[in-house]
Design a binder for these strands. Structure first.
Ligand SMILES: [Mn+2]
Ligand SMILES: [Mn+2]
Ligand SMILES: [Mn+2]
Ligand SMILES: [Mn+2]
Lengths: 229, 229
DNA sequence: GGCGCTGATTAGCCTAGCCTAATTATGAGA
DNA sequence: TCTCATAATTAGGCTAGGCTAATCAGCGCC
């Protein structure tokens, strides 16, 4: 018989699931996730990360190169993408079906993602018509673990005179999200970059008929794609 | 200033929340919940319960009389009723809005009840029109912690020739729930008790035009209210 | 090539929750 | 009243997942 026809998929703990998600995000540009970056994102002390890294690599979810960092194994990546699908489907469901605003879904999804069953997530996805993006424009992985890899640049890096489509905004700060909605800066919006001040200065853009000045900090949270003028 | 104008409501753990719910159910008929009954319902060993009982009474959620059992304090009862509201609202939501059957909502609600925010529960309740009963007929506490106390008898105890309304069914066995739905034995159904065999034998009832024989084990899971003929 | 800063790891501790084995209290019946 | 079965508790141990303080590895710079 097969050694593992379907070997008991030990349920992961909430902590483990959050570590895997963070490691996924930190190493998605191909590199290693460092202990201190993981610690900062999870708001735990670096030694806590060292301890968890030991356990995760023993269970085969990550690869650890001491003093360099960690990367997900295929198994770890599958688990991380499953959590990301859950998180993003939940965010869409809460906004579309339960009247949540896009600035306060993140926290709720952060807890629920660990408690919902696969069946519930797929029922929610079905009720929503299988959405491809979350409310902040982030792509939703398929149940099989495929995820769209778009090449996006931040508004801070966009060339002057370029025409852009705002595709995705960082969703980690509710106040920022409220401001963005207020300014009409939501995914799908067309922008023209009018000018940028030197020394990390603000970028001026045209949105429809309006003009907006966007500071560098904010511009770094706005992910765009170039568009044929 | 007030000693507790709003004293930090330390969030309870999943374990603590489940203990409180179980203690609520075991002591709802006015008595004490025993260590071994709590252990059996939570599927843990009795010493685990002794340990948790110590902590819960130290934090003021229960009152412990050694070798007798425990009861909820007012604070504990409030916390328990909050969990019961969550559980039952979730059950209604899953069945009404997401196509779950009444026999498989319990397990999902048992996990989600610990992860949802009060805001999400109230949004779900609102979307449902503030239901008063869960899919199995159990009353839903109000956000303020009020719960309907109905005097129900099991079908096994109902007098022959009585006319009853089935109000509530025990929801702990999915197979039983499927069978009940199949037999038309759902909350709200009118029954006439035609006869009962001696020696703990089955009860025969009329449902509309049909006749059903209900064994004692099943009859003990059906809670009814007498009705004027 | 060595110094020293930074970041990672190790050592040691803590709490929550579980467990088994041993001990003790309670109360029903002889 | 004494005995003894049963239930409860205590003793002691384990894992997950945190923490702080101490140590160590890597590497840029003089
Ligand atoms: Mn999370
Ligand atoms: Mn998002
Ligand atoms: Mn539960
Ligand atoms: Mn129920």
């Amino acid at each position: 018989m097969h050694a593992t026809l379907r070997d008991a998929p030990t349920p992961l703990t909430r902590s483990v699931e959050d570590y895997l998600k963070v490691i996924y995000h930190l190493s998605s540009q191909g590199g290693f996730a460092s202990t201190s970056d993981i610690a900062a994102m999870l708001e735990v002390a670096p030694p806590s990360v060292s301890g968890m890294v030991k356990r995760l690599s023993e269970t085969g979810l990550i690869e650890h190169v001491p003093y360099r960092g960690v990367q997900l194994t295929n198994q770890g990546r599958r688990a991380a993408l499953r959590m990301i699908r859950r998180h993003r489907i939940l965010e869409v469901y809460l906004t579309q079906q339960l009247g949540y605003d896009w600035d306060n879904v993140h926290e709720e999804a952060e807890r629920l993602e660990h408690a919902v069953s696969d069946e519930l997530i797929e029922r929610m996805a079905g009720a929503l018509g299988d959405p491809h993006y979350d409310p902040h424009g982030a792509p939703i992985p398929t149940p099989g673990g495929e995820i769209e890899e778009a090449e996006l640049i931040t508004l801070a890096d966009a060339p002057v005179d370029g025409v852009l489509e705002l595709r995705q905004v960082n969703d980690d700060d509710p106040a920022r999200l409220r401001y963005l909605a207020d300014q009409g800066l939501t995914p799908g919006t067309r922008l023209t970059v009018l000018e940028r001040q030197p020394f990390n200065g603000p970028t001026t853009v045209r949105i429809g008929a309006a003009t907006r000045v966007v500071g560098r900090e904010l511009a770094l949270a706005l992910w765009c794609r170039g568009v044929q003028a």
